[in-house]
Design a binder for these strands. Structure first.
Lengths: 252, 252
DNA sequence: GATTGAAGTTGACTCTGATCAATTTTATTA
DNA sequence: TAATAAAATTGATCAGAGTCAACTTCAATC
């Protein structure tokens, strides 16, 4: 039982996501201190909400396993999706200004998260400069994320948006050391549409074309990138990568 | 001369933007310490760049007067505009993750800024909890800004986008205590288009219609909102305001 | 394994906003 | 003030993606 608990509740020090997630750039001792305030929650099941619009903000959440979707509901009740979050990603940063959550976060799969109480994190952060720096980096990353998404929505056509989406997910798997040309992705096509400002019909047509052209095959939840180079070209990254994994300061 | 210098280089304590800008939530003594690291730059003239893509990141910039536009250039050379920044706004937060600027910042008017060297700010921030909190709030605000813009781009039609743009600028003037139903705005219509993912022609047609319908008159650089309520309705704010000005912590 | 509802696909048609082009207005510089 | 360039306007045309509808496939539950 003790062993099982250890495996399941592996602390930050044993966590495979150390290089991606919060502890990036921290020394062993600091990680231990961070670890002491982290609450490992029991996993969410598909469809469970991690938080909802209007709820008071208390904690940031780091994804350990699964996928979380962040979305808003318009007056007319339609979903506007703002992002998908994979293991190692941190969500909730946006809630700080409002002291409450402005968006909904829902698990798309069985998903486990670490909750980091913000008031404790803030105190600890003041004591550990590297952690404070890491906080700034995480938030800066969040700013970039929104900017990049705005760029995609305002200047790219439907094919390019879908290509960019698939390629950006692939890159994130790559950065985590997973297979990235063939992977399982529990995201509905309609969710992709709602994220990219398109309709499900359009996404469906584009994926049909992609399969026919042997660019990408995405059937059920299995994604297989056939022609990486053509996908990259179509996705059209600017010079800046979609994801930054490391912004450590060299410390003396 | 001393007097002139004082007036021009008014420190944070005398600055009218205290309630909007960086010092929000700081006590007098802390503001003085912040003030000591702030560099007041000689004003930029219209068309001058505050920073460019690829430049090393050293400082955040707080706008004192004027307008700054943040933009990227696509491979094909067209401008993608990510935001317009008014007095009291802070720019550069996004550059932290990359240790360099990813976007271009250009003055649209005679514009003066305060530069805040980030390494010094980081040190000071660790010593002044309220300042550190303010940093988090600013960055959180930046995250929300990008999210909101994504929402606008993905779900609103051309009329709604233009209405939203005008209303959000008006709100920002309102928050700063300026007149907000009638103001001068040195932003070209083509820039509005590039910000909203539209063409100049479309923006022009929409503004012509708005004038005819007595909704908004925008000629030359003069904006006059005729029917505030209809504009708000068309802009269609969600429950969340486009701008948060204060996220102070109550301190004991 | 059968039932039922959700998700995905495909086709026909429509419409919003882009494109192209010509002209007018405004801004900048000599 | 004239000359020139940049921005804005207006009209005609076009196309990419949305809408609507019918149908198929898939997934959850009993």
């Amino acid at each position: 039982m003790a062993d099982l608990k250890t495996a399941f509740n592996a602390g930050c020090l044993n966590c495979g996501l150390q290089k991606i997630c919060f502890p990036t750039g921290l020394v062993r001792n600091d990680i231990t201190r961070l670890d002491s305030i982290v609450e490992r929650k029991t996993p969410f099941r598909k469809g469970d909400h991690v938080f909802r619009t209007g709820q008071a903000f208390h904690s940031l959440f780091a994804v350990r396993a699964g996928v979380i979707k962040i979305y808003a509901l318009s007056d007319s009740g339609e979903e506007q999706i703002l992002g998908f979050y994979l293991p190692g990603d941190v969500i909730g940063l946006d809630a700080l200004t409002h002291k409450m959550h402005v968006y909904n976060a829902i698990a798309l799969d069985t998903t486990s998260v670490c909750a980091i109480p913000f008031d404790q994190l803030e105190v600890l952060s003041l004591q550990i400069p590297a952690l404070n720096h890491q906080m700034f980096c995480l938030m800066s990353k969040g700013v970039n994320e929104g900017r990049l998404h705005s760029e995609i929505l305002s200047k790219r056509n439907a094919d390019q948006r879908v290509a960019h989406f698939i390629w950006s997910i692939a890159q994130r798997f790559m950065n985590r050391g997973y297979a990235y040309t063939e992977f399982r992705l529990g995201v509905l096509h309609r969710d992709v549409a709602a994220f990219l400002g398109l309709t499900p019909e359009t996404v469906s047509r584009i994926l049909a074309k992609s399969a026919q052209d042997d660019l990408v095959h995405w059937k059920r939840k299995e994604v297989k990138i056939v022609d990486v180079e053509r996908l990259r070209a179509l996705a059209g990254e600017r010079n800046v990568s979609a994801e930054v994994t490391d912004c450590r300061v060299k410390s003396g």
